[in-house]
Write a protein that binds this DNA or RNA. Structure first.
Length: 291
DNA sequence: CACTTGACCTGTCCGC
DNA sequence: TGCGGACAGGTCAAGT
């Protein structure tokens, strides 16, 4: 579920909602979701104060004043939902996908000293949340290899071309999904950016004209920014820190639009399978580049 | 090494 | 209605 725009939306919400709060207790029911020792939890989490919320790629980092951090990945179905003491237990915002919390999918509950709570829910249990020394985060294998942030200014068209060059024999969609090439793109925004650029997802990188790759760079930045502006994409599970859905999919041109007419040419959007993932394309507008 | 495929889980939807 | 199978937005490990 959550790709860069969704995690960024959650991050901005939590930044407003939990920075400065003190953790009173934590409750977790599934070892894989929160694989820390009780000793570490007691020593570095309980009674700690939240100093900062950050995002890198699709990973959300909550820094504590103990020089430890809660590092979380929402994977496919994870949610981080905040409830103030007034809303807790008494329902939810009008457009929320979740009701009373904790619910069946709640894996971790954090109680703050002011009575508010943060819930980590994850239906499919792929996600995780772990307590780590803040300065060790950068040593995690994922952070060692992860590529540039597409919304930072060092992500130029030249930078993208250079990173794509290492993977010139792969299908372009597989490369966009590879977090070591570029951080934060997932299935939704790969499909959208390739459609916007007129590139067939099965094209090998080496066969796509340079001019199209330069367009692709701009379209990646545009689609991610547009999605952040609409609070991300809610397909099935995604909600932000206050339980709200995102509205980007109302602007999507191909994702989940199979059988509907392409807005450019009126041909039906079709769904195929690329790199093991459901992939949405317009076969007329997206050229399969082969020299 | 570059690249692709299967595994991790639960829930839902679709066809018989 | 019931049941089996395919599929779902991400990442690793293990395979070719």
């Amino acid at each position: 579920m959550p790709e860069l725009p969704e995690v960024e939306t959650v991050k901005r919400g939590l930044e407003r909602l939990i920075v400065g709060k003190t953790i009173k207790s934590v409750d977790y029911d599934w070892a894989k979701s929160f694989p820390n020792s009780n000793n570490d939890v007691q020593q570095f989490l309980i009674d700690s104060k939240i100093t900062k919320v950050r995002r890198r790629a699709k990973v959300l980092i909550i820094d504590l004043d103990t020089n430890y951090s809660l590092v979380t990945h929402l994977k496919m179905t994870g949610q981080l939902v905040f409830r103030g003491d007034k809303s807790f237990g008494s329902g939810h915002p009008n457009d929320s996908l979740v009701g009373k919390l904790p619910d069946k999918s709640t894996r971790v509950t954090i109680d703050f000293t002011d009575g508010s709570k943060l819930f980590f829910n994850d239906q499919r249990k792929f996600g995780w949340c772990r307590l780590l020394p803040t300065d060790e985060i950068k040593n995690l294998p994922f952070f060692q290899k992860v590529g540039p942030e597409p919304l930072e200014k060092e992500f130029t068209a030249q930078a993208l071309l250079k990173r794509l060059d290492r993977r010139k024999n792969s299908m372009i969609k597989a490369v966009l999904l590879d977090q070591s090439v570029l951080a934060g793109i997932g299935n939704i925004y790969a499909d959208e950016a390739l459609f916007m650029s007129g590139i067939h997802p099965e094209s090998r990188v080496a066969n796509v004209p340079k001019s199209k790759l330069i367009n692709l760079h701009g379209n990646i930045v545009d689609v991610l920014q547009t999605s952040i502006n609409s609070g991300g994409s809610t397909d099935k599970n995604y909600i932000d820190a206050e339980g709200r859905k995102g509205s980007f999919l109302t602007f999507a041109k191909v994702f989940r639009r199979e059988g509907l007419p392409c807005e450019n040419c009126t041909n039906d959007i079709v769904k195929i399978r690329v790199a093991g993932r459901g992939t949405h394309i317009c076969v007329k507008c997206q050229v399969y580049n082969e020299h």
